[in-house]
Design a protein around this nucleic acid. Structure first.
Length: 469
RNA sequence: GGCCCCGUCGUCCAGCGGCCUAGGACGCUGGCCUUUCAAGCCGGAAACGCGGGUUCGAAUCCCGUCGGGGCUACCA
């Protein structure tokens, strides 16, 4: 599921929860080329991960049948035929090739490229006879002309479109499959949809859907068109921009509550300059009418920051639970109980420093391996000639140290710094690299405490010999 | 081209005729704190596209213009 779709779903969900309405999930799969059972699973996974439970629809059921459009083709066909019988729709015998040809001509002359309505004038009895004789036809809606459609969009206000700009669009393809317009409008009617909140790309289709709904003899729902999410080039966000699907954010180490929080901010704000907030607060305050009219650019840097905020807000046990899968996949094996308890000790310090859960594995790798892998840049930066005496002194002190606690280690090493006349940066960084493999790591004294005296001293010695050798 | 929508810092959001010398957040940046990295704290640069109206007064209302986006299929 695309993040733009995810945000649209989120706004629908917030609206339903805020108003006490019913959030329905249906699968629009009338386009064979772009539909696949895999897409359906991906969408449902994405919704579940974001925490957008639906009250009715696909996978959970409800009073209206299947909730998958490809299961409802007979229903759409029936609806189209009723309209033909009533005269508000008509069969069109033009072939796609002919239409294509005419469209090109129209464009060349600068005429509107829409369908010219020529089959509309075919006598009803004649058309019926031709179909009875086996001629295939698409079904088109006969738009009232002259005329205009007016409606009030919850986000955009009054919208008016002259029917001269609306062609008689196809309801049912000549092979009997419905178009998106027919299927979704019939569904909206059948499912008793009161509010349709969807992407702005569908704004131009709305007059068609309203005319169809009217022809169907049903009440027109209230529409709200949500602005699109753009990439940094101002174009509609797509894979080209490196945009990930909702589920990919999970794999990349994002928290669903962080993504949801960020998505809320794309086109909406809860007021009071609030930025970091739980979904429950969004439910309390959400109004479709308060959604911005402007397209929003997706800013990954802000999402990253937002994720850090949510990670830090996690209760410690929760942080552990979410971090573990990432550590294990980084390590390539499961954590032993002993390794897990080692991580638990350091976890609060790691949590403060975490932006993405996927970064944790490399941060704490040194806790779980037999031999640290030295980061090349870190090594050359701090393992200078001065580092040797520091390592020696540290080994001597730590071997003698009484209680192996972070506080004792710190006291001892600070005394060493005084003795050697070194500042912390000079004196501690070689130790950090020796013990963790990198100049960037969780706090040193605590790390040593967790590793234990033997491992710590052994690593200092290993670095010492490598420095000499 | 036609139709529709939109136009406040680089980005997201606030602003709904006087509270605006335009506010918050991310990012950027100077400093503090500091065992590294983060986090935190203090400070800084940074925007009402343009032109006309309306009004005592406009970021806020109207018109035009320019710019951006969407749609323009027997796709959704």
């Amino acid at each position: 599921m695309h993040v733009g779709t995810g945000r649209t779903a989120l706004f629908n969900w917030l609206f339903a929860r805020h108003t006490g309405g019913t959030f329905i999930v249906r699968i629009d799969d009338t386009d064979d080329e772009r539909s696949d059972p895999l897409f359906e699973a991906d969408i449902l996974d994405g919704l579940r991960w974001l925490g957008l439970q639906w009250d009715e629809g696909i996978a959970v059921g409800g009073p209206h049948g299947s909730y998958r459009q490809s299961d409802r083709y007979p229903r759409y066909r029936e609806a189209a035929e009723v309209l033909v019988a009533e005269g508000t729709a008509y069969p069109c015998f033009c072939t796609p090739a002919e239409l294509d040809e005419r469209r090109k001509q129209a464009e060349a002359v600068g005429r509107p490229p829409g369908y010219d309505g020529r089959c509309r004038t075919i006598e009803h009895s004649v058309a019926t006879a031709r179909r009875a004789a086996g001629e295939t036809a698409a079904i088109r809606l006969a738009i009232a002309r002259p005329g205009a459609t007016e409606f009030t969009d919850l986000i955009r206000g009054e919208i008016r479109v002259e029917h001269d700009n609306l062609d008689d669009f196809v309801l049912l393809r000549s092979d009997g499959r419905p178009t998106y317009h027919l299927a979704s409008t019939v569904d909206d009617v059948d499912y008793e949809i009161t509010h349709v909140a969807r992407g702005e790309d569908l704004l131009p289709s709305t007059p068609r859907h309203i005319q169809l709904t009217l022809a169907l003899g049903a009440e027109v729902p209230i529409y709200a068109h949500i602005p699109l999410i753009h990439g940094t080039d101002g174009k509609r966000l797509s894979k080209r921009h490196g945009a990930k699907g909702v589920i990919e954010y999970r794999e990349a180490g994002y928290l669903p509550e962080a993504l949801a929080n960020y998505l809320c901010l794309l086109g909406w704000s809860p007021g009071e300059d609030l930025t970091v907030f739980p979904l429950s607060l969004a439910i309390e305050r959400f109004e479709l009418s308060a959604v911005s009219k402007n397209p929003a650019v997706f800013d990954l840097a802000k999402l990253d920051w937002m994720n850090g905020e949510h990670v830090r807000a996690l209760p410690p046990e929760e942080f552990m639970a979410r971090a573990e899968p990432f550590i294990e996949s980084g390590l390539g094996h499961e954590l032993t109980p002993e390794q897990r308890s080692r991580f638990v000790e350091l976890a609060p310090l790691v949590q403060e420093r975490t932006k993405l859960l996927s970064e944790i594995a490399s941060q704490v790798r040194f806790l779980f391996v037999d031999d640290v892998e030295f980061d090349a840049d870190s090594w050359t930066k701090v393992m200078t000639a001065e580092a040797g005496p520091v390592l020696d002194a540290a080994v001597a002190r730590l071997t003698e140290l009484g209680d192996w606690t972070a506080a004792e280690i710190e006291a001892s090493l600070r005394a060493m710094l005084d003795e050697l006349g070194l500042n912390p940066r000079k004196g501690l960084q070689p130790l950090r690299v020796a013990v963790t493999g990198s100049t960037v790591s969780p706090p040193l004294f605590e790390s040593m405490a967790v590793l234990g005296r033997d491992v710590t001293v052994q690593r200092l010695n290993t670095a010492r010999s490598r420095l000499l050798g």
